[in-house]
Design a binder for these strands. Sequence first.
DNA 1: CAAATAGTGTCTCTAAGACAATATCAC
DNA 2: GTGATATTGTCTTAGAGACACTATTTG
Lengths: 274, 274
Amino acid sequence: MDSEQSFLANYNLSDYDRPSVTADVAAFMIRAENTGSYRKNPENKLLLLLIRRGGHPFKDMWALPGGFLQRGETVEQCALREIEEETNVKPVSILPVGVFSQPDRDPRGWIISHAYASVISEESVRQTGRDDAADAQWFAVSFTCGDDGSYHLTLSYADITLHAVLQAETTHFRRTSFRIIDSGGLAFDHAAIIAAALSALREEAKHYDAIFDFLPEKFTLSALQRVQETIMNVSVLPANFRRMVSGYVEETDEYVRGGGHRPAKLYRRKAEPL
Amino acid sequence: MDSEQSFLANYNLSDYDRPSVTADVAAFMIRAENTGSYRKNPENKLLLLLIRRGGHPFKDMWALPGGFLQRGETVEQCALREIEEETNVKPVSILPVGVFSQPDRDPRGWIISHAYASVISEESVRQTGRDDAADAQWFAVSFTCGDDGSYHLTLSYADITLHAVLQAETTHFRRTSFRIIDSGGLAFDHAAIIAAALSALREEAKHYDAIFDFLPEKFTLSALQRVQETIMNVSVLPANFRRMVSGYVEETDEYVRGGGHRPAKLYRRKAEPL
DNA sequence: CAAATAGTGTCTCTAAGACAATATCAC
DNA sequence: GTGATATTGTCTTAGAGACACTATTTG
């Protein structure tokens, strides 16, 4: 009968078969683009960061940023590290999306991926983000649901357009997973990961939880509403939106002037929603 | 410049440092225990399956069933396999709870765990489950929240009582994780996994989504209500509960008699809630 | 009949959606 | 003034919680 200490001294994990473990991150940002008129408010575009693969497999195709889990870090820390390495920006928040472990999902071998969605504010990218790497680009996102449970994911940057088609499948506990019909030129199973990340992001936005991280500390309520509408892809009446978020924000005494219309009060996220 | 084929032929994943990967499952069951009176309905007990560890580390302590991911299966399939190996019952449903990857969580080394909650019906355990293994037992669960965000998890079976204390910590996106204050004699970080699984189960039960899996195909609405109340640890007025689940169930033409009171109609889960 | 559960009806309150109306700026 | 957004108020409707009431069985 041996002690725990001697057991552990003789224990060798490498006796067992092990997969490689990665974290892949769908990093989202919203860019406010000015309209022609000095009166009108800017229009929002939802953007997703993609990396052009330099090597095999899926060479020259676009993929989510990600990388292998390193010893001494958690999977979440790995995801944060990867996104920071790629953008030089610390994401405001990170959200677990799911584990992708189909044995054949990676032609290199047995690799399971932990998917995360992360939110990056435009402000932080302007301040510290490098936009110089040609292999990393922000793609405009369109994600629409057909009436038969099919989803269309369109990612576009300059003259590049990736169009993926997915089929939503409801698993237990009304969770949905996405089966790839057409990867649209995205590497690995990343089309399905992106779809899952967008669904997770929308689920959070429902409760006004992901939307603040896209904006600077102080914001107008209409800017917050545009973020909400950009993510959810539906529009809300301003009066109702104000009432609904009123519990999550607090006034400041500052205003935004110069818009050719009534100045808007700046708000701040309230620490304690209730 | 080499082709993708030759790249993959020379690619060797074992060049990289890899963790071991496990799935751990919190399997829940509800047992209806008859009261003394012939009139009264049975009382429900929420049960959790624990395994007494036969070897180091944490020898002789209680732990969640689980095991290493095998080549060729997904993490979810691994969780299902582990719970089926242990109980001889195929769980009705399985729910991802989180990934636990703190580097020091397992004294054997670098092991990351994928936690699942699963629901098993009492009926299926009575039919095919072996209850003979002395190292696998169903523990009665009590999980209560203090007013300061501390949680008390009490697991009891016969004369064994495990009492763990945890601190809830709200991470981003109002997800809560649990920090172990006192493991209460549970192995590894399983106290935190169990707390997370119970929280996830309650979250599902809010939408009447996990509760059907505890019951046989046909059930009375009051039995369904007792399941809901057992999981959520709150009581509801019968009239309101009936109205709220009315969209999720459909009538059968069968009745349960012999209860010393008005017979109850049996219901069935409705396939399409809306 | 008594005790217990099964099942229905209805009141109130709140929250969400729709919409009307006013306020305030820059040009 | 005009065109745009900012902001407030109110009407209606749907759903949740509370509660009163009826129905039905078995010892």
